[in-house]
Computed example of a mutant assay.
Amino acid sequence: MKKPVVAILGATGAVGQEFIRLIEERNFPYSELKLLASSRSAGKKATVNGREYTIEEAKPESFNGVDIGLFAGGSISKELGPEAARRGCVVIDNSSTFRMDPEVPLVVPEVNPEDISWHKGIIANPNCSTIIMLMALKPIQNLSKIKKIVVSTYQAVSGAGKEGIDELTDEVKAYLNGEEMIPHILPSKSLPKHYPIAFNIIPHIDTFQENGYSKEEMKMVNETHKIFHDDAIEISPTTARVPVYRSHSESVLVETEDELSIEAIRKAIDAFPGAQIQDNLQEMEYPMPLYTSDKNDVYIGRIRKDLYNAKAVNLWVTGDQIRKGAALNALQIAEYMLDHEMFK
């Protein structure tokens, strides 16, 4: 196939900027590149592979002649996703807009690449926490059916975008200067009340639902069921925001149908693409967000049997939210489609 025409929607944001870095790093092929954003960012400049581009305002006609649309996320996906698809563009979308649409595949390329084949113009990128968790659990699922998952997340402020990153920096500076920390973003910009994230943990990401779980927590439940094609898995999530710039961490208990040895689990994870074991207690080696930031792989450590359930193991999982949790996963979907000649 000829090199595709690629458009990045949201090119000035954290995920959009990561798309640009990854396209350069991975030598992603393209014949033309369009950088799109809102009218506020139109006219700004960005350099990709040594060439300067002018950011264009994203409109439906922006996708005429575009083969791949890498959407960084946001509410604009709801409007422009279907418009781009109608124009023959394959949209790979980072927002939550299409994830649970039964007509839209929800894909982690290492986990369920076969679902890409039935797309109808839009492919959804899962939530960052879901991606990071399933990269650790898919090797286990390959050994034995998963029955139950209990997960607690420790999510970096990068999950709230550039504004979340800036807020942590501003609050740390204010605190160290003896000034009042005035939060504006977290737990969510849309909520009426905000809390400082510096030197704090906020057990609240997105809005709370009637069942007492947050929308972020229910994303992990619903998306895992869809990706694994198994609604019978019992999933109990708790998601929290922590004062870390990049890389989400997760404490995961997973119960399987069969009893598995730690050795078998280690071997399966070690052989799984995109997953790395970092688990040497004697040398105090285990995954930490400071050291997994800007890395493509998801790191798994503290692998140990549950104390009371022989069919359950506990894991500590860390992965870069902006990379594998967002931009890299989307780009890998496009790479898979190119490798398998899935573009018309």
Rank of each mutant, 00 (worst) to 15 (best):
K34V: 09
Y245V: 11
T238N: 04
S152F: 02
D166N: 13
E167K: 13
L134Y: 04
T239A: 15
R87M: 10
L70P: 00
L191V: 07
F208K: 14
Y245F: 12
S62Y: 01
S31K: 12
D294R: 02
D231K: 06
M100L: 15
E210V: 15
K311R: 10
K344A: 07
K3M: 14
A327T: 11
T318M: 07
L290S: 07
H248T: 14
W316C: 01
P273F: 10
H184Q: 12
L307V: 08
G69A: 15
V104P: 00
D93G: 09
I68A: 04
A11N: 05
E283K: 13
Q278L: 15
A7W: 00
I202E: 05
Y195Q: 03
Q209I: 11
S214E: 01
F228E: 06
A58P: 01
A275K: 04
G10I: 07
E163M: 15
R86E: 11
M288I: 03
K148Y: 15
I265E: 01
Q276Y: 08
T97V: 11
F28M: 07
L260A: 13
E223G: 03
E171G: 03
S261W: 07
G16K: 05
E259K: 15
P287L: 12
L307E: 03
I149C: 11
S96A: 12
V221P: 00
H225M: 07
Y308E: 05
V6D: 06
M284F: 07
V172R: 08
F71N: 02
G43A: 05
V104E: 01
L35A: 14
A330F: 02
E285N: 11
V90W: 02
S152I: 04
A58T: 04
K147I: 14
E25V: 11
E103Q: 14
E255G: 10
R246V: 13
E210G: 06
I201T: 14
N94D: 09
A264K: 13
C128Q: 04
G161Y: 05
G319S: 04
P102H: 09
I132L: 11
M284N: 06
R246P: 00
E163S: 15
G88Q: 08
L143S: 07
K344L: 04
A312D: 01
T169Q: 12
V91N: 00
A326C: 08
P139I: 09
E234A: 15
P126M: 14
V157H: 04
P289I: 01
I132V: 09
L143E: 03
